[in-house]
Design a protein around this nucleic acid. Structure first.
Length: 281
DNA sequence: ATTATATCCTGATCGC
DNA sequence: TGCGATCAGGATATAA
């Protein structure tokens, strides 16, 4: 864990992908016996909660930074239902094989299935549940960086003539979806691009480097089950391993793994950015 | 229209 | 030892 106040893991694309992949085989095909929401913040301002009791879970996958859970119709001819869970800062979806007897701290919701229980634990209470009538309705506005839809032409279109810094641009969920503060820094380092560069002013080769680095970093993070600093745990309650592979994030003052210069930290959009001023131009 | 800032929330840490 | 201030950040609302 890093220096300074309460550095935490952020469930970004690789962490959410990890949770969804591990959760799917545990709960797909299972029937919901009961959903209990314990935190008022999860319920307020979103209208009536749909009835999920009796539905079967038909699909679990990542959608942007959300875990998307598909439920069958409650009766023949009825409408299906989709739940998009956003973990935000500290949310966790934890699968337990048996019904829990012990009281867990920060437990915000529990969904009892016929074979176990899915717990939503979220100390900081930023996480959200959103209900949708279809998977399409739950799709985010931005393009998934791992989707084949992200062609060089599409990336050009997304970057456009944006005057924002590259770091700020990468965090925008209405362009690319799924990147957060950790992977934005890591991707820019891998692409050898300064976080201060204007997003709309990259040369074609630089855009190519950005595209390649984005894909490479995310796939490698997924292969390592994401990054854990202190809070993030996957659906089985285990930690990821990518924190050992971070090149710049939370490594201020340490040598750049590429050129050995000291890694710098700056603040952009009220968020920390870590970068190497020598090899990121 | 785009871009920047304040806000939500809690736990860990820091300084006195 | 205690206690208040500070910091972390995803997304949204609001401001510029």
């Amino acid at each position: 864990m890093g220096r300074g106040g309460g550095r935490e893991p952020l469930p970004e694309l690789p962490e959410v992908e990890t949770v969804a992949r591990q959760l799917a085989p545990c709960i797909v095909g299972r029937r919901v016996e009961r959903l209990v929401v314990l935190d008022r913040l999860l319920r307020d301002g979103r209208g009536r909660w749909p009835q999920v009791t009796g539905r079967a879970i038909v699909e679990v996958r990542r959608s942007g930074k959300r875990v998307l859970i598909g439920f069958s119709a409650r009766r023949a001819g009825g409408a299906p239902l989709w739940l998009a869970v956003h973990l935000r800062m500290t949310g966790r979806l934890l699968w337990v094989e048996r019904r829990e007897r012990q009281v867990r701290e920060h437990l915000r919701a529990r969904m009892r299935l016929d074979c176990g229980e899915l717990l939503f634990i979220d100390p900081r209470r930023f996480g959200t549940f959103d209900w949708h009538p279809s998977a399409e309705a739950a799709e985010p506005a931005g393009v998934d960086p791992l989707s084949p839809a992200l062609t060089p032409a599409r990336l050009d279109e997304l970057l456009g003539a944006s005057a924002q810094s590259l770091k700020a641009w990468l965090l925008r969920q209405d362009r690319l979806v799924g990147l957060g503060n950790i992977y934005a820094s890591e991707i820019l380092h891998a692409a050898r691009l300064s976080p201060f560069r204007g997003a709309g002013a990259l040369t074609p080769p630089e855009r190519g480097r950005l595209a390649v680095a984005t894909r490479r970093i995310l796939l490698r993070a997924i292969a390592n089950c994401g990054t854990t600093f202190s809070d993030f745990q996957d659906a089985r309650g285990r930690e990821g391993a990518y924190q050992h592979l971070l090149a710049v994030y939370d490594r201020e003052g340490e040598p750049c793994p590429r050129c050995r210069a000291r890694i710098a930290r700056t603040v952009q959009q009220q968020r920390s950015t870590f970068y190497c001023a020598r090899c990121q131009r």
